[in-house]
């Protein structure tokens, strides 16, 4: 049985981060893009908590709580803007968000 070290947490966090980035870049549905951004922020949280344990200090956990709050605020504003957008245009597909270009 291999003991789980900080390194393992970092690998999981890095994987989550990459998945989130790929999600934002490839998915065309705004809600799924917002979820991918949450994935990135959760990777950050995992990193922070793992490092906090490694160093035996609390700042990382405090930062993680702030990021949770920030993610909630961002999701709330994001969905609010999305609803305002949907009312006018009736779509949440980013390929059809094409009024502004060049």
């Amino acid at each position: 049985m291999v003991p789980i070290t900080t390194f393992h947490y970092l690998v999981v966090a890095a994987a989550l981060f990459v998945l989130g980035v790929i999600g934002v870049l490839t998915r065309r549905n705004v809600v799924i893009m917002l979820m991918s951004i949450e994935l990135i922020l959760n990777a950050v949280n995992l990193n922070l908590v793992a490092f906090s344990r490694m160093w035996g200090r609390l700042e990382g956990q405090v930062f993680a709580i702030f990021i949770v709050v920030d993610a909630a605020a961002e999701a709330a504003v994001g969905l609010g803007i999305l609803i305002a957008f949907f009312r006018n245009k009736e779509t949440i597909n980013v390929d059809e968000i094409d009024l502004l270009k060049w």
Partner: peptide, 28 residues
């Protein structure tokens, strides 16, 4: 205006996430 806000939000939140990831590594 809706469209601008949506694009700004998606890219802004995305970049904030990447930024926070860098900060978490510096903390480590």
């Amino acid at each position: 205006s809706n469209e601008a806000a949506l694009k700004y939000l998606l890219l802004g939140a995305f970049s904030s996430g990447i930024f926070a990831y860098g900060l978490s590594l510096f903390y480590g």
